Computed example of a mutant assay.
Amino acid sequence: MKKAMLCAVAFGLMTTVYADADWDYEQTQQWGSLSQKYAACNGLNQSPINIDRSIKAELEPLTFSYNTLIQSIQNNGHTVQVDFAQGGVLDLDGEQFELKQFHFHTPSENQIKGKSYPLEIHFVHANAQGELAVVAMMYEQGKENLLLKQMWKRLPKQKGEKVVLSKPQPVQSMLPENKEYYRFSGSLTTPPCSEGVRWLVLKEIQTASQQQIQQFADLMGHPNNRPIQPLNGRVVVEN
């Protein structure tokens, strides 16, 4: 019960943390000392990580049922967050994790074999107990991404601005055909850095044009990625 309550609190903070004004990306090394509520940022199981070594395992296939539409996009100064109606579900570990929101980082937060990507998306989920699962997907520079193109047309330019889409876009279409993944235990990548998050990093790399990547970077005005954190003995598994 105590664990469930802590996870629920962590998720509540996660849905609002980007609105906090008491942290920024220029002081990532000091997050843990900014406030007692951010003490977990000094923990031993933090994200993001460099996925350098992994162990093959019998991982269950990821089953997504994203039967929902993108409704709004908001600029909170730290990222662009996309929200939608209920209906998106990830089946994981015999449980259902509801899709809550997704957002972007540039450059990528996680790395794969030491490689950083220019853009990373995080699909954030929570189960009935408030426990979190984040599905990450990387973008490299290449062909224009038609799915991002639709959202990029309506990117809110000002911090605090929220845009409601006149033509909602299906979320399911953003997922790749190949859903093989890496898995590890980690944390939120922003304060309060709560641990116990199930991280699933998709192996298939998507493409976005140089212009699309630059447009998001210019909108943020600064890199919005937390530096790589030590593994501290954690094991990364893959299928």
Rank of each mutant, 00 (worst) to 15 (best):
I112W: 06
F102C: 11
N178T: 02
I51Y: 10
A39H: 08
S185V: 10
V236R: 05
V82A: 07
H105D: 09
Q214C: 09
C7Y: 07
C193Q: 01
Q206F: 04
F123A: 04
T63F: 08
H103L: 10
T79K: 00
F123W: 13
L202W: 09
K167R: 10
L13Q: 14
M14I: 03
S72V: 09
M5C: 01
E98Y: 05
T106H: 00
M220A: 15
G88C: 07
K167G: 09
M220K: 14
T16F: 10
L219P: 09
Q101I: 06
K37V: 11
E98K: 07
E161V: 02
S54M: 10
F64I: 04
I70L: 14
K159P: 03
Q29C: 11
K100S: 12
Q111W: 13
W199A: 03
C41G: 02
L34A: 10
G221T: 10
K203M: 09
T106L: 05
I70C: 07
D83A: 07
N127E: 12
R53K: 15
S33A: 11
D93H: 08
M138K: 01
C7D: 15
M14L: 07
R183F: 11
G142P: 10
L92H: 13
N67C: 07
N127A: 12
V134F: 15
E238F: 04
I55W: 01
A136W: 09
P61W: 10
I49C: 01
G160E: 05
I205R: 00
G77W: 03
A136L: 15
F102R: 05
A21E: 13
T189E: 14
Q210P: 01
L99V: 08
Q169K: 06
L6V: 13
K153M: 08
L165Y: 02
K179A: 00
K56H: 13
Q81P: 03
S35C: 02
A126G: 06
I228A: 05
T79D: 11
L132I: 13
S209Q: 08
A136H: 12
P230D: 02
V197C: 08
I49G: 00
I70N: 10
K115N: 00
T189M: 13
Q96W: 02
T16P: 02
Q86G: 04
R226Y: 07
L119W: 01
